[in-house]
Design a protein around this nucleic acid. Structure first.
Length: 215
DNA sequence: ACATTAATTGTGT
DNA sequence: ACACAATTAATGT
């Protein structure tokens, strides 16, 4: 990683929310500028968290490790974002629960936790900035959870249909969406919508009380 | 054949 | 998740 200087003007341009000369000059003074090339690992799972990253340009992919080795995508950080989660790590003084990798060539401002903390009291504008980041991250996490829950149900449903089809030795399953929903402990609407998608992708055909599987 | 009704499925917020 | 619309199958006349 190559380190370079960064101008206050550029900082102000990327983070209009923290337009305070005192804060900006402290930022410039105490934080490190990092040029991360594509696929550069910025924080690895288990690393000690020492800085709050602020993204000046580029995109950072934040993910969590599966029990195995599989990566679970959480969210992207792009220009003007910050990873406020770093704060929770520093308050509990623990190690990173996530890993962050540069998705493309990126420029980051790494703010030492010590200062990031002090500024919470010193600069209300900074505190607001951090709180806003928390809120944004929260929303993107909720989206991610939705996506996950949806994917799992998708697979569950296909497995359910395959099992049933095999059990009755027929590709014609006679049941209602409600019955399936009860079996899988989800709402009927979720099943209806999934089935329709599966129909559109050609995996099956729907009729009232009927599902024709295309093997 | 047609109207009525209940059950199932679809959609928007 | 909920409320409501639309569609479909069944039933009675």
């Amino acid at each position: 990683m190559i380190k370079k200087e960064i101008s206050i003007d550029l900082l102000a341009a990327q983070f209009p929310e923290i337009n305070d000369l005192g804060l900006l000059s402290e930022l410039k003074r105490y934080s490190e500028v990092i040029y991360a090339t594509e696929n550069k690992i910025i924080i690895e799972y288990g690393d000690q968290v020492t800085h709050v990253p602020m993204v000046i340009s580029g995109t950072i992919k934040v993910s969590r490790q599966d029990e195995n080795e599989h990566e679970l995508f959480l969210y992207y950080l792009s220009s003007g974002d910050s990873c406020a989660a770093s704060f929770s790590c520093c308050m509990v003084a623990k190690r990173s629960e996530i890993s962050a990798v540069a998705e493309e060539d990126s420029i980051l401002l790494m703010v030492p936790l010590k200062y990031a903390n002090e500024w919470m009291e010193k600069y209300p504008i900074w505190r607001n900035f951090i709180f806003n980041m928390y809120e944004q991250r929260m929303y993107s996490l909720i989206d991610t959870i939705d996506r996950l829950a949806f994917t799992k149900l998708d697979e569950q449903l296909i497995e359910y249909l395959d099992l049933k089809s095999e059990a009755i030795k027929s590709s014609l399953i006679e049941t209602t969406h409600q019955e399936i929903a009860d079996d899988l402990n989800v709402t009927r609407e979720a099943i209806s919508r999934l089935l329709k998608k599966l129909e559109q992708s050609g995996k099956l055909k729907l009729g009232r009380n009927k599902i024709y599987l295309n093997n």
